Simulated assay, not measured.
Amino acid sequence: MSEPLAQVQDAQWMCLPCGHVYDPAHGAPEQGIPPGTRFEALGPDYACPVCGVGTDEFEAI
């Protein structure tokens, strides 16, 4: 059973290869992404700041 959409949108997202966690509440200021930016809004150019993989390698946690 999948999680309700609202819970997934507000979830933290973990990079599967390296374990880095993107938290929408904090954003990624070092990459110019302000706090409150949902994972879905990061766009196709977002890359993990640790290992460089794209959003397709992240999973909601």
Score class of each variant (00 low, 15 high):
residue 2 S to F: 03
residue 2 S to Y: 02
residue 2 S to V: 10
residue 2 S to G: 06
residue 3 E to R: 14
residue 4 P to N: 09
residue 4 P to M: 04
residue 4 P to D: 05
residue 5 L to D: 06
residue 5 L to Y: 04
residue 6 A to F: 08
residue 6 A to T: 10
residue 6 A to Y: 07
residue 7 Q to N: 14
residue 7 Q to Y: 10
residue 7 Q to W: 11
residue 9 Q to C: 03
residue 10 D to S: 08
residue 11 A to K: 06
residue 12 Q to R: 06
residue 12 Q to F: 07
residue 12 Q to C: 07
residue 13 W to I: 06
residue 14 M to R: 15
residue 14 M to F: 07
residue 15 C to K: 11
residue 16 L to Q: 11
residue 17 P to F: 03
residue 17 P to G: 01
residue 18 C to Q: 15
residue 18 C to T: 02
residue 20 H to N: 12
residue 20 H to S: 09
residue 20 H to Y: 15
residue 21 V to A: 05
residue 22 Y to N: 05
residue 22 Y to G: 12
residue 23 D to A: 11
residue 23 D to R: 14
residue 23 D to K: 12
residue 24 P to K: 15
residue 24 P to N: 14
residue 26 H to E: 15
residue 26 H to S: 04
residue 26 H to L: 13
residue 26 H to F: 07
residue 28 A to T: 09
residue 29 P to L: 11
residue 29 P to N: 00
residue 30 E to Y: 00
residue 30 E to L: 02
residue 30 E to A: 10
residue 31 Q to K: 03
residue 31 Q to F: 00
residue 31 Q to T: 08
residue 32 G to F: 03
residue 32 G to R: 07
residue 32 G to C: 02
residue 32 G to P: 01
residue 33 I to S: 00
residue 33 I to Y: 01
residue 34 P to K: 06
residue 35 P to V: 02
residue 35 P to T: 02
residue 35 P to Y: 07
residue 36 G to L: 00
residue 37 T to W: 09
residue 37 T to D: 05
residue 37 T to M: 08
residue 38 R to F: 01
residue 38 R to H: 04
residue 38 R to K: 15
residue 39 F to N: 00
residue 40 E to H: 02
residue 42 L to R: 04
residue 43 G to C: 03
residue 43 G to P: 10
residue 44 P to S: 04
residue 44 P to M: 00
residue 45 D to V: 05
residue 45 D to H: 13
residue 46 Y to R: 03
residue 46 Y to K: 09
residue 47 A to L: 10
residue 47 A to H: 14
residue 48 C to E: 13
residue 50 V to M: 07
residue 50 V to W: 13
residue 51 C to F: 08
residue 54 G to L: 10
residue 54 G to N: 09
residue 54 G to W: 15
residue 56 D to N: 12
residue 56 D to F: 10
residue 57 E to S: 14
residue 57 E to I: 01
residue 57 E to Q: 15
residue 57 E to H: 08
residue 58 F to Q: 12
residue 59 E to P: 00
residue 59 E to H: 03
residue 60 A to N: 14
residue 60 A to E: 14
residue 61 I to M: 12
residue 61 I to H: 12
residue 61 I to A: 09
